[in-house]
Amino acid sequence: MIRIARPALLAFVGILIVVPLLWIVVSSFKSSPEIFSNPWGMPRSLKWSNYATAWSENNLGAYFINSFIVSLLSLLILIPIGAMAAYVLTMFPFRGSQFLSGLFAGGMMFPNFLVIVPLFLLMSKLGLHDTKAGLIIAYVAFSLSFTIFVLRGFFSSLPRELAEAAELDGCSYASTFWKVMWPISMPGLAVVTIFNAIGLWNEYSLALVLISSNTNRTMALGIADLVNVQQYQADWGALCAGLTMAMVPVSILYWIFREKIQSAMLAGAIKG
């Protein structure tokens, strides 16, 4: 029984994951009538123009760039300040450091979306509603919990002696961090960076509330909106092209770093 059940389960799961995603990619090369008349088959010819339509006519090119800018700037702020905090919290215990570690980690225990109304009101009051800056600030603030948590685990595995040696040589605490600890932490920093990059690229719920105008839309918002629009225009081919454009960067990142990402997911989960 088990001898058959095992491969059967694997095949079932494999098909269930691959087929829907592959179907989108295949359909992105079809014309709309072809998707309707022949939903299962291969495209008769590759309709690359779907991508051009999605990129320029449906404005996804602009949203793609917005997503790129927002994710990149968020990471450029998040990773250094998260690393600085995690470093202090692991290497420099002081009264209250335990409490602060718990305060940061606590953010992983409840859904971000619970604070969406006060966050929206706060951003409006600060003039940051519907700005990329506001979205970036929110992304950084809400990614700190996970980032600090994983990096704390990473820093506590580093040799403390290395920092002490540098400090004895007369390095200040800050330059010890930037010149000695930061470079040797690259593997850990890379993992949290990739992990956050994927999450931020995909983020939808916060952006839905914090962004309202077309010029600031991210890819996730743009595609969700496109679905609503396309239901009337019904250019399904272009919609599938847009979806493929959203999937590809994440898939490539994931495929290159899959083992690291898996270990980051486990580190975030198991040590908790």
């Binding site: 799961v13 494999g14 994951i17 691959v18 995603l21 989108i24 994927i198 690229w201 995909n202 983020e203 939808y204 890819m219 996730a220 595609i223 969700a224 979806l243 959203a246 999937m247 994440v250 898939s251 994931y254 899959r258 990402i261 898996q262 997911m265």
Partner: peptide, 12 residues
């Protein structure tokens, strides 16, 4: 591939 659904945007 089993983590693909998890790393895809919920929009997708």
């Amino acid at each position: 591939i089993m983590l693909f659904p998890q790393i895809m945007s919920l929009v997708v």
